[in-house]
Amino acid sequence: MSRWLPEVDEVLEASGWTPGRQVDTGRWRSMFEAVGLAMHDAAEAFLQEFGGLTVNVRGAGISCARTPFELDPELAWGEDDRFAEWGEWIGHRLFPLGELDHGRFFLGIDEVGVIYLVETWVASFGPMPQAMEHLVLGVAPRRIDEEYEPAGQPS
């Protein structure tokens, strides 16, 4: 039995995913650890299974448009401070997963397997495997940064 609806399986398989897929995450681990962003177990497990996939979904979704996403942490290279700051704010370590909507937003994962949209604000797609369904089927993430004040901004 799949952990997703059949439509999600179909979309992921069309993107190159197969059950039991194993991708070497060493390059991503080395890159980000060199700038102080450690890859935790949840990030490694996710990227081993889904790293390198480009998911080209489009059209109407459940609560927002279906938006393409690419699962390659290198697409968030240079944004380590953004992931570190938001991780500190939410109380979980965030590791980059890639980008959503052709670079408009970044995707990250915390150490308990929750997937986030990361920008100048942050929102949650929920925990895996539900988060993957939300991404594929067009379920809007829940914004969680409403009380956040960036450093140096007046209250």
Rank of each mutant, 00 (worst) to 15 (best):
G16Q: 02
H40F: 06
H40Y: 05
G52F: 00
G51Q: 02
A43D: 01
D41P: 00
S15Q: 03
G52E: 02
G26S: 15
T25E: 05
G51F: 02
R27G: 06
F32T: 15
V23K: 06
M39T: 01
E49A: 15
E33K: 06
F46Y: 13
T18D: 01
D24F: 03
H40D: 06
W17C: 14
D41H: 11
Q48W: 07
F46L: 09
M39K: 00
T18L: 12
D24P: 09
V35Q: 02
W17A: 14
G51T: 04
Q22E: 03
R27F: 07
G16E: 04
A14T: 05
A45C: 10
M39E: 00
A34K: 03
W28P: 14
F46A: 05
F32N: 14
A34N: 08
M31I: 11
F32L: 11
V23S: 06
L37D: 00
A14Q: 09
G16A: 04
G20S: 14
G51N: 09
G36P: 01
A14L: 05
Q48P: 08
E44L: 08
L47A: 13
V35Y: 02
V23I: 08
F46C: 11
R21I: 06
D24G: 12
R27P: 08
H40C: 04
E33W: 09
Q22A: 11
E33M: 07
F32S: 09
R27Y: 08
R27H: 13
R27K: 15
L47N: 10
M39G: 01
